[in-house]
Computed example of a mutant assay.
Amino acid sequence: MRFSRNATGTLFVGGAMALTLTALAYPGMLGLDKVSTAQDRVIANTQWGPLTEQDRDFVVKVRAAGLWEYPVGQIGLQKGGSKAVITASQHLIDGHAALDTTCRKIAPMLNITLPNVASPQQLGFVSTLKSDQGKQFDTDFANILRMTHGSIFNAIAKIRSTTKNSLVRALADQANDTVLDHMTVMEKTGLVDFDQTLFQQTTPPKLPNSDLTPPAPPPGQPEVVLTPPATATASPVDLSGLLGGGGTPAAGASPNPGPTGG
């Protein structure tokens, strides 16, 4: 199967971060094969609750996922050879447009800089699917996307169960529903090789951090927007009334966090 040769790896598992003031705005690396002992370190205190490294990483990762899965959904609408693949493509576009809107809403509130381009690994998935034709496209599409969504599913649960930041919790709730939906529509294609996909999902290759990190946008670059389709059914999170861990914010509290001490 071509998937096993060209699309190995997982999408989101962990990520060691550089503990610098600039890293608050953008992670130094998002190594998917790394495990950090400081991921629960608080890097900013906000009116929505403390922000940890893994909270910050999660927001960036959700954004990066949309930056490659949304265009893959557009490719699928053009190249999909079955009704099930076309339906799955529609779900990718719809779900990631809504998730992206939420990411772009909460990122400035938490002083997080979002990427405008997916990671080299993720762009490699896009390249594989662009070059595929016919049945090979449908097969690689279903297996790559089932693998990558399966990889992030457990990570979302960890974030949701541990974060003290109400904005990150809201994003995790939305991401959980979206990823479960996308896993399901991939499975409904009838093309998923579960033995191969689960092996790739649980045994990621050791890739350099440069392959796994979406590049930071150049200063002043306009933010990429993933436009919802005209037939959108997914909606961004309603952030009105969300508070942090301790009740009503103090009067005059700034919506943006300041970096905590090193």
Rank of each mutant, 00 (worst) to 15 (best):
A107H: 01
A38P: 02
R41T: 14
A142M: 14
G241V: 10
P120T: 14
S131M: 12
I156C: 03
V60N: 00
G9L: 12
N6H: 15
I75H: 04
T213Q: 04
S82N: 03
A175L: 08
K164I: 05
P228Y: 06
R41H: 02
G261C: 05
N165G: 07
C103D: 07
T87A: 13
L21Q: 09
L171D: 01
I112M: 07
L226T: 01
A230W: 08
H149M: 00
R2T: 13
P27Y: 04
P255Y: 14
G241F: 11
P257T: 12
G261H: 08
T113G: 15
A98P: 06
T213L: 05
A7R: 07
L51Y: 06
V225F: 05
K135T: 13
T233F: 00
A251C: 13
A23G: 13
L11G: 00
N209M: 08
L21P: 02
P27D: 07
G66M: 05
L191W: 10
I106S: 10
Q196T: 15
D140V: 13
W68I: 03
L67G: 05
K61V: 08
F199M: 11
L67Y: 02
P259T: 03
N45H: 07
A170I: 03
F199L: 15
N209Q: 13
D40V: 01
S161T: 07
Q200Y: 12
G49Y: 03
N116A: 00
A250N: 07
I93C: 00
T213C: 08
A88F: 10
H182T: 09
K34C: 05
G245R: 08
D193W: 11
K164P: 08
V168K: 04
A172L: 06
D181I: 05
E53L: 09
Y26C: 02
G9R: 13
G81M: 07
T213Y: 01
I93A: 03
Q78L: 06
E69N: 04
L92V: 12
D211N: 15
Q221R: 01
Q78F: 00
F12P: 01
F153L: 10
L243I: 06
A172P: 07
K164S: 10
L242E: 06
M1Y: 12
G220M: 01
A18K: 05
Q201N: 13
T10C: 07
F141P: 04
N111V: 04
A142N: 14
R169A: 15
D33R: 03
K34T: 14
F153D: 12
G49R: 09
T162S: 06
T202V: 13
T184I: 02
V224F: 00
V72H: 05
V35N: 11
G95D: 12
H91C: 06
L123T: 11
N116P: 02
G81H: 07
N154M: 09
G247M: 08
L21K: 11
C103L: 09
I112L: 08
V59G: 03
I159W: 11
I86C: 05
M109N: 12
L114H: 00
T178R: 10
T113D: 06
G81W: 08
N209G: 08
M109D: 08
S235D: 11
T178E: 06
R160N: 11
A25F: 04
N111E: 07
V224S: 01
P120V: 12
G252S: 14
P217Q: 02
D94H: 06
S89Q: 10
R41C: 00
P257S: 11
M186C: 03
L180Q: 13
L19V: 04
P217S: 04
G80Q: 13
K83L: 09
D195M: 10
S131Y: 09
V126G: 04
T128I: 14
